[in-house]
Design a protein around this nucleic acid. Structure first.
Lengths: 185, 185
DNA sequence: TATTGTTATACTCTATAACTATA
DNA sequence: TATAGTTATAGAGTATAACAATA
């Protein structure tokens, strides 16, 4: 039975200026996302041995309804165009996408999802949404809405803070360990 | 300004049996965690060019107060022992850990964090907790507690469901696209 | 026989830098 | 000059399989 991740009792003294409740929330967020992604990955790989990025690129192409350029997809996935080239090579090799020259701007390549790719997305999305429905059952609409609000608040803070230089945190006040190094055997 | 991720209006019809509110919650969870991890990674790399796994292994060693075996660390990070060997090679090469033979069980290797490694952890943890304090400001204790509850609920469901065969989801009912493929230019 | 850790090998993702073609 | 995409190269993390040493 998984329990909430909690910080140690001396947290406030050990990390001056840091809020234990927020540290716990962030730790629980990251752990929960990691475990959810693991379960999603496990289920998606029953369909095709693609990475999360591969599935995401296909979902973006499917959702767009029109062919996208490599740069479009790179922006969605927040990676460089060189990385997208490599990812698209994988997807093309498995027959999920096709490249076509852009009819007007000859620098560009249009990426289309193939019929096979659409079939894969049609099988993949129900798996993802069924997983969400299972993992977040028994929670009230209000709990889910609060949850989404916290996620959105965090994303806005990331947006603001990522443009600033990182702050200089107050130093750790390391607690005296209760267990000695020589006790390890 | 980041907005909550929402599913399209026809979600319920498109994915029978799936709950749009839960699909939205999972999408927001994964996105928020991804962006938070990006910001954490950016800030931690001002200290040392280590991966998230590298920092996590050091934090585990620091928190344990006693040397751990490779298998111990592998269990914490949920990876294979072969992967841990590679990760520990990186950490040892940068002087953050040391390997010592286990005094009793000669199959084992004890991993100790070095003084340099401790100094790194002492600088890294305040960065992490300060980031959490910044990213989750202006939220009430009750909001944070609800957030942690939802994360924990999800983790328990992952624990239960990961042991079962994946369910057979009901098929997608693909909506008729409003934009035709030929509109892409 | 089972466990611990390592090596060998392979694959994927990602990045930077240099390059071509095009706008 | 700037943009789009590719190639070359490199590095990290992860996995599986085979292996040696030890319990």
């Amino acid at each position: 039975m998984a329990e909430p991740i909690r910080v140690a009792s001396g947290f406030g003294r050990e990390f001056p200026g840091c809020d234990p409740a927020r540290a716990e929330a962030l730790a629980n967020l990251i752990r929960a996302a990691n475990e959810a992604l693991g379960e999603l990955d496990r289920r998606r790989r029953t369909l095709s041995n693609l990475s999360a990025s591969g599935f995401e690129a296909l979902a973006v192409l499917d959702g767009a309804s029109v062919p996208l350029t490599g740069t479009d997809i790179a922006n969605h996935l927040l990676v460089t165009t060189a990385s997208i080239t490599s990812l698209l090579d994988t997807l093309a090799g498995r027959g999920y996408i096709e490249r076509q020259p852009h009819p007007i701007d000859r620098r560009k390549t249009l990426i289309s999802i193939t019929k096979t790719g659409r079939q894969l997305v049609d099988e993949m999305l129900p798996i993802v949404h069924t997983t969400a429905t299972q993992l977040l059952d028994e929670l009230s609409p209000s709990q889910l809405e609060t949850f989404v609000s916290v996620c959105t608040h965090l994303r806005n803070r990331v947006e603001q803070l990522s443009e600033l230089p990182p702050p200089m945190p107050r130093p750790r006040r390391r607690p005296t360990p209760r267990i000695r190094t020589s006790d390890h055997v």
